[in-house]
Design a binder for these strands. Structure first.
Lengths: 214, 214
DNA sequence: CCACATATACCACTAAAGTGGTATACAAAA
DNA sequence: TTTTGTATACCACTTTAGTGGTATATGTGG
């Protein structure tokens, strides 16, 4: 039942590696089986050892963490990957997760928290510290808010048609759906483009998708 | 230092309200000062009492939680709002957070966790349970991955043009940017639409934006 | 070397999209 | 009541978009 987790440590600071390795190796169920100080090495070691988990520093010189992450995925390394970094920028967090990291831990975490995360991640669970949760949440929040004012300038009809445009519907199809003539649809499109300051339905569609007009 | 938090409870299950109210009122620093069983009531009560925090059920009959949430924001209710629900669907979580909820708690949380969340939220902090963190994270993850296979079927040129289409560029503009004729651009557009199984550049643009082709 | 994929180009044609103008009906606001 | 905003409609016209076909040059993998 006590499954042993084999860990690859990737960080360009030897001292930090020492410290973390020591911490990890004190645990009976965890051990650092390899270390790397840059992305290229990381990939080699990952392929050679196929560790259960890779602890990956984001801010490395040379091939950075995100690139390394992508490269690892591309190289069919199946290890779980936890990003380990000082950065709590929204950008970094979301990008790391999008590219397939199983977790994201800040370097100033308590040792116990780090160990807990390592154990969970090694089992394939996704872990995120509470602080980062909040960053993620506000990232999502900001995603929707902008330029709502423009939407308010549109009439109900225009908004309705904007939504259909963003579905890819042609004027003809829109006309059929709303049971009005195509000519009328064109008028609404014309008005909505003018209000939004856009030059084509394509721009309108992109706008609608980006600002999640639904 | 012991600030007292006044809470509005919104849920259409009287029994659940009873239980939660009892739990909250046992705490010296928290009290339920009003209850509502639907969205309309919630808004009235919120305006009347301006509570520090609103605990809002998502799955109410009639005006649902999300609508209520929006209406509350529109009504300039400045209370912190925590969504309290049985649903852990990605859709619900992200929508609630986008619309300005300060937190999201599942109804099957432990009482202590609920109280902890209430206290944090009342102070304006954003709280999200660990389970939901994972849902959020995988939401972000999925956002980028799908249908990459389709992209791989496109030639470099087609991909390049797809990107420009998603910027709203016309064929003429694309031709100028790439220094090829408009006719050639049309050919590429034709091919890329065929490969993607789409019927117009609008659909392609929407597709590109949604799957973040950049 | 040959076959295939890619990028390019031109053409003619059809189909959508977008513009400008005019007009009617209705409801809400001034 | 008059004005304004909205939704609707029709029309003529221009511009874009999309299709089908043919063709050439280049490079890559069998």
């Amino acid at each position: 039942m006590v499954s042993h987790s084999r860990i690859l440590l990737v960080d360009d600071h030897p001292l930090l590696r020492k410290g973390v390795a020591q911490l990890i190796n004190m645990e009976p169920d965890l051990s650092v089986i390899a270390e790397a100080s840059n992305g290229e090495q990381a990939i080699q070691e990952a392929i050679r050892h196929q560790p259960d988990l890779i602890l990956l520093d984001l801010n490395m010189k040379g091939m950075n963490g995100i690139d390394t992450l992508q490269a690892l995925k591309k190289a069919d390394v199946t290890s779980n990957i936890v990003v380990f970094t000082v950065s709590d920028s929204e950008e970094d967090v979301t990008r790391a997760l999008k590219f397939g990291a199983n977790g994201y831990i800040l370097k100033d975490s308590e040792p116990e928290v780090l160990l807990e995360f390592i154990r969970k991640s090694a089992k394939g669970e996704m872990v995120l510290s509470q602080q980062l949760t909040q960053i993620l949440a506000s990232a999502l929040k900001n995603e929707s808010s902008p330029e709502k004012t423009i939407l308010n300038q549109l009439t109900d009809r225009e908004l309705e048609i904007l939504k259909l445009i963003s579905l890819g519907d042609s004027n003809k199809i829109i006309a059929r759906k709303l049971d009005i003539t195509e000519g009328t649809v064109k008028v609404h499109v014309k008005h909505l483009l003018r209000k939004m300051g856009l030059r084509s339905r394509v721009e309108a569609a992109v706008w609608a998708v980006e600002y999640q007009v639904k």
